[in-house]
Each structure stands twice: as C-alpha cells, then as structure tokens.
Design a protein around this nucleic acid. Structure first.
Length: 476
RNA sequence: GGGGCCGUAGUCUAGCUUGGUAGGAUGCCGGACUCGGGCUCCGGUGGUCGCGGGUUCAAAUCCCGCCGGCCCCA
C-alpha cells in the first residue's frame, strides 16, 4: 500500500501531506486555497491542546474575552507600522452580493486594532492595570507565499492571542518574561523542543519595540516559528489613545504586550512526534488515548467481546478517552488504522487473555507488546502514557540539539549548512550591519539571538569582539 | 518575488505525444471465509475527465483564461 513507502525523514513533505489527511486530521479538498476542513478527530486534538494553553493563561491571571472579526478601515489604519506590515495580507469586505457597503471592513489578521480600540475606553486609571486578556479565534491572512496545510494557511482557525496593558515599561518587560514562561510550559506539556530567540530588529513585528520567537526544527531541518511574544511599547497606546491617570493626577500612555500561538502547533506536534507509520499523540492531546482491539476466535467471540466491554467501562470510568474497535476489519488492519491515527496505547484482547486473566498492551512509540494482569490495567496504562511522553519529548530535544551547529566564520557556516542544514549560530558583535551581512552572505534567514547567551571569539563579519550568537536557518 | 510539475470515480492512477467506445487498482455495498500485523474468493456500486471559453464533423487529449494542489529557487 502507499503508506508503506512513506518516510518521515526521507521525504518529509510527502509524509506530512499524506499523514494529516489519511489520519482524519483535516480534509484539504475544500476549494479555497489555504483554508482547510478540520475533521472531528483532528479538531478534538486541537481543542485539547488549546485548552492546555488556555488553562495556563488563566493560572497566570489572564481572562478570556471575545472581540469581533471585522475591523473598520479607519480603526485598522491608526498605527502606521502595523498598517504597513499587514496591508498586503489583510482581506477587505466591501460589499454585499447586491450592493457596495457604505464603509469598508477588514477581516482581522490579528486583533490588536480591534482590542485596543476598546482598551482606550476601558482603561482610565492606574487601578485598571495591568489588563491581561486573551481570545482564541480565527484570523485571516492572505499569505503570498505558498500555503502548507495547518502550518501556513489563509484562515488560521484557532489563534490564541493574549493582549496586555501595563503602567510601566518595567511591568511590560516582566510580562514578556511571564509570557515566555507560559509558552515554555505549554510546549513542555506537548513534549516539543524549542529555542527562544530575540528577533532581529529588522524583522520585528509590525508596530512593536521588540519580540521573541519560539522556534522548532522540523524533520526536514527547516525552522518553524511556534509562537511569538511581543513588546509593543507605547506605539499602539499612542495611536489608539490608551491613557491612564496616575495617583498624582498626571496621565500616561500604557505599555503593551501581546503574544500568540495557533493551530500550527498541532502541525508541528504531528511532524515532530510522528513516525513512518503515522502520528504519535502524547496522551494529553490524544483524541483517543486507548483503543481496544478484540481478537475474535471461533468459540471465543462472546467471551472476548464481553471482556472488551468490561475493560472499556473500567477505563472510561477512570477518565480515559477509550474506544473499542468493533468493525469487521481484521485485527491486523485495525492495528495499522489506529497507529496511523496516533493512539498512544492499544489493548488487544484475545482467547489467551480471556483464559489467563490478562490483557495485551502495545505502546505506539516503540510498538513494544506486554502482557498485563487484569488488576494492573490502569496503573500500567498510566505508566505507559508517562513513558511514551518522556520518550517523545526526549526525541524532540535530541533532534533539536543535533541540528544546531556552531560556526566561527561565514565560510564555515556555508560549508556546514550545505552538509547538514538545520540551524547555525555564529559569533556576532550585535550590530545590524553585521547581522544583515551574515544573512546576505549565507543566503539564510536570521532567526535572532539569545540575550542571555554570551559568545566567545570574534564577530564572523567585522572581527570585533563577539557579544552574542546570531542564529540563522531556513524558515517555513 | 521567480521558475517548474500536476488536476480523470471517495482515494491512487492508465489513457493525452499522434483528437474518434473513459480502463485498472483501492475504497464502498452484499455474500462466503478468516481473524494475536493490511488474508482470500464471488457479485455489485461508483465518472459534469477541476471550471469556463476556443479550434474541430468530433476534445480527457490541442489552444487560451481562471480555480485548486505540490515542488524548487530567492
């Protein structure tokens, strides 16, 4: 069959395209470029992942709200850098089928302008600060680059965007660190690896002071942005007139931050954790955590099915997402089917298990098969969830570290990239000129730097003392 | 931003060069047989050949435009 020839590392793109559709995550046949149908199975994993993030945000004092999808043109245009940055990819609504509208509306590509219009009404006093809100909504971006299912789309269907306002720049900076902490916890919960880099000035988010991005290195060794944390300073506050009154009676503009994560994280999770057989979901985002496969045998059909039902009820009662596959397919076919879909734990119940008071458990990541006594079922499964998670996480971090290379000169960087791809870090004096020259002479994109990581040696371009490492690679 | 490949049944695809009855596999439905890794056999179902226009006696096939998908380069 076709799936037999798939190889995640041999041909990642082909693997990815096949897996996400064959596993019932999405259906890309809907005839609008960059817009996908999410099937129930895929949508469930997305919701599970997003709720982990939403719970974290709430733990850290954020509240969920909802803001509208349409932005009046004059509101969208208030902040000039933002307008410039998003003008090429923002959809416009300007008519009904019958007639033009009196006023143009834009479909939110992200909700700064929508929210901050309201912030200016809501924020009056220092007592209203800090304000920490989030929403998880769809946003629209007319991507001019080529689209890629889930990873680069024109309708981002679940964009979790947080927006905060603060009284002081120090508090905004502190908020940036808090956001990074939240996002790191989120990716940790999914078993993903990441590097956190401060974006080069020339690539900073439209309308921002500075921002940090989380990057993962995909199986094809290209980097992908997993999430972004942005310090907006007072630019939007000034554009939207968001002021508060201090205890001494004077007025000041607020300091703002925003940060966002989208369904892209599911695309990355599938890519990082999957293998040639398909997806491997960590238990916390697996739509089905345990699949029970009856192994029927002449004279045993009823006993086998009865035991399956008992195990099913027991696991369900204990809060697991479990299902019995009672379809007419052969057991072997079912194994492949559920492995493709990434169910972390499979239970097989056949005549031997009925006779011996056991069940047979197979873990998805290693396909290791163990026989477990009936009274140990729950503890063994929970133990396996944990082991699978740790294994996936370790694989992801090993992969990341294995694909970050250090070079001391541009020539060396080029040589390494040609042989090994991935991410390369170069000692850097920190100047824009040298950063841009590194990009130009390697043909790679600057990902940023880690302000806490001090470099040794001299700048790969100018030869002055290096302060930092400049990370470069190819981006999705 | 530049270049290339592609679109035929739910899915994958043959046919296109050289215009003339759309064929196969898989899936799906019914049945038999099996069942601890995609078993086998029998019968059946399923097609505006992506959309629109042009050329022609005749277009899946040739030409043009659009829509959609994929890849490579910057």
């Amino acid at each position: 069959m076709e799936s037999e020839s798939l190889s995640k590392y041999g041909n990642f793109s082909e693997w990815y395209d096949y897996i996400i559709e064959a596993s019932d995550i999405i259906d890309k046949r809907y005839p609008v470029k960059g817009m996908l149908v999410w099937k129930p199975y895929g949508y469930r994993s997305l919701k599970l992942a997003m709720s982990i993030l939403e719970n974290l945000l709430e733990e850290y004092g954020h509240e969920e709200a909802y803001f509208p999808m349409l932005v009046p043109e004059e509101v969208f245009e208030k902040e000039k850098d933002f307008l410039e940055g998003f003008s090429g990819e923002t959809f416009v609504v300007e008519r009904t089928i019958r007639k033009p509208l009196m006023r143009k509306f834009l479909l939110r590509p992200t909700s700064e302008t929508v929210m901050y219009y309201m912030f200016s009404l809501w924020i009056q006093s220092y007592k209203d600060l800090p304000l920490k809100l989030f929403q998880t909504v769809n946003v629209f971006r007319y991507e001019t680059e080529h689209t890629k299912p889930i990873l680069r789309v024109r309708e981002i269907i679940r964009f979790n965007e947080s927006h905060t306002a603060h009284a002081t720049p120090e508090d905004a900076d502190r908020q940036i660190m808090e956001a990074i902490e939240i996002y790191a916890k989120f990716y940790d919960a999914l078993g993903l690896s990441y590097i956190i880099l401060k974006t080069p000035k020339w690539d900073t988010f439209a309308g921002a002071e500075y921002n940090y991005d989380f990057f993962e290195i995909m199986p094809d060794k290209k980097t992908i942005e997993l999430g972004s944390v942005i310090n907006l300073g007072q630019k939007f506050a000034k554009a939207f007139d968001i002021k508060y009154q201090k205890p001494n009676g004077s007025f000041e503009y607020v300091y703002q931050t925003c940060y966002g994560i989208s369904e892209r994280v599911i695309g990355v999770l599938i890519s990082m954790h999957g293998d040639d057989r398909g997806i491997i979901f960590p238990a916390n985002v697996a739509p089905i955590q345990v699949i029970i496969i009856p192994i029927p045998y002449k004279g045993y059909e009823e006993k086998v099915l009865k035991k399956c039902e008992e195990v099913f009820s027991y696991l369900k009662k204990n809060g697991l997402r479990v299902r019995i596959d009672k379809t007419e397919k052969t057991p072997g076919e079912k194994f492949y089917y559920w492995e493709l879909r990434g169910v972390p734990v499979r239970i097989e119940i056949g005549p031997r298990d009925v006779d011996n008071n056991t069940i047979t458990i197979v873990r998805r990541d290693t396909l290791q098969r163990i026989v477990v006594k009936d009274d140990e079922i729950l503890s063994k499964i929970k133990e396996l969830f944990e082991k699978i998670f740790e294994n996936l996480k370790k694989r992801a971090w090993d992969w990341l570290y294995k694909n970050i290379h250090q070079a001391s000169s541009i020539e060396e960087a080029n040589k390494i990239y040609e042989e090994r791809q991935g991410v390369i870090k170069l000692p850097w004096c920190g100047s824009d000129e040298c950063g841009l020259e590194i990009e130009e002479k390697t043909g790679l994109e600057g990902l940023g730097h880690d302000p806490k990581e001090k470099a040794e040696g001299s700048c790969a371009v100018c030869g002055r003392e290096a302060k930092l490492y400049f990370y470069i690679g190819k981006r999705y």
